[in-house]
């Protein structure tokens, strides 16, 4: 592993240069990852909670047109979209967020490649930052990640003291990105940063994901689902704040009689309309079935399909839930 040391001031100089070049630099705020206008906005605080939403919307927007159409009396014309993959540098991404893109990548490239996702993702540089604080909702350690996980990061930062970071170059992409700035990098010593990462307090492991996987396979009809179904309001905020939920809807929107566009919009499996057939039949007609789908999709189906859990353990869905459903608690209860 290639480890360097960089001072905070030098890091901010790099940021200044990135902004100056017109690239988008995202950094986490309270609510969301926002594009930095001035380096004074950058807060590299490893002890902050995850922002309320991840940067998922930069690679998979909440709403995006997939085509435009023009109708005349007896003809239709289609206009394709060109996604301009702009360089986006994400600075200070939490390990529970860095993971997300690599998890979603499987789905968007399973057989058919979704270039809307790929072209954007290709231009991402993810600079992860170790996380030193957790709250009652965090459970990254239960889904195979950790506050010091480098997975998904191109470059990973570990705060050594108030003014210095250890900078680990993880991927080729990261190496290429940092090369022009090598003047700012000092040679680092791995033992130093290891001391920091080893002392990070880890959230307690709440469940064994393999056991959960097994339990889900045998308990499709468990009465436990009904209890959860009665609680859930089906507002689907959990899907909207989730860094890896990827279900979407495709709808047409007319601007006028002759013009319109086809949109790909975020959707949520907790909505009753999600699986409603036009005939009125609904395979997941009640909330307990929909919640069962949510948990199964994350902890079983996705594992079956792609070998990874569709969850990063960030705890956002639980923090935001208006009726305080805690997914960690529910999954921990997925046992006999």
């Amino acid at each position: 592993m290639d480890e360097k040391i960089i001072s905070k001031d030098d890091l901010l100089k790099i940021c200044q240069d990135i902004i100056g070049k017109g690239h988008t630099l995202l950094t986490p705020g309270m609510n969301e990852y926002f594009p930095v206008k001035d380096v004074s906005q950058i807060n590299l605080d490893a002890s902050a909670l995850p922002a309320k939403t991840s940067y998922k919307s930069y690679v998979f927007p909440r709403s995006e047109p997939v085509l435009y159409y023009k109708r005349s009396k007896d003809d239709v014309q289609l206009i394709d979209i060109n996604v301009d993959g702009k360089n986006i540098i994400i600075l200070g991404a939490k390990p529970c967020d860095t993971n997300s893109i690599s998890i979603m990548r499987h789905l968007f490239n399973w057989d058919y490649s979704d270039e809307f996702f790929n072209l954007r993702e290709k231009h991402f540089i993810i600079i992860g930052l170790m996380c030193s604080h957790y709250d009652e909702y965090c459970f990254c350690t239960s889904v195979g990640s950790s506050p010091v996980s480098e997975k998904g990061s191109d470059i990973f930062l570990i705060p050594l003291d108030e003014n210095n970071f250890a900078l680990r170059i993880i991927t080729e992409k990261g190496k290429e990105f940092i090369e022009p700035y090598s003047e700012y990098l000092k040679t680092g010593d791995e033992s130093h940063s290891k001391q920091v990462t080893e002392n990070v307090k880890l959230p307690e492991v709440a469940f064994d994901s393999k056991e959960v996987y097994e339990w889900l396979g045998n308990n499709f009809e468990s009465p436990k689902w009904e209890g959860i179904g009665n609680l859930c309001l089906s507002c689907a905020q959990c899907a909207f704040v989730c860094p890896v939920c990827h279900c979407f809807d495709i709808v047409d929107e007319d601007y006028s009689y002759s013009e319109g566009r086809r949109m790909k919009n975020w959707d949520g499996c907790q909505f009753g309309n999600f699986t409603l057939h036009a005939s009125g039949h609904n395979p997941r007609d009640i909330q307990s079935k929909r919640y069962r789908q949510r948990v199964n999709h994350k902890f079983r189906y996705y594992v079956d399909k792609f070998g990874e859990i569709l969850c990063t353990g960030c705890g956002r869905c639980s923090r935001g839930c208006p009726v305080s459903i805690d997914i960690k608690e529910i999954v921990s209860n997925c046992k006999d």
């Binding site: 057989d111 979704d114 979407f248 495709i250 189906y301």
Partner: peptide, 24 residues
């Protein structure tokens, strides 16, 4: 089998029955 589908490409997430995607 028939289920509601939007993408037909195994991405939009609604046609699955267990880990089986009806569209794929």
């Amino acid at each position: 089998l028939e289920n509601r589908m939007k993408c037909g490409l195994g991405k939009c997430g609604r046609c699955n029955i267990g880990n089986v995607y009806v569209c794929k």
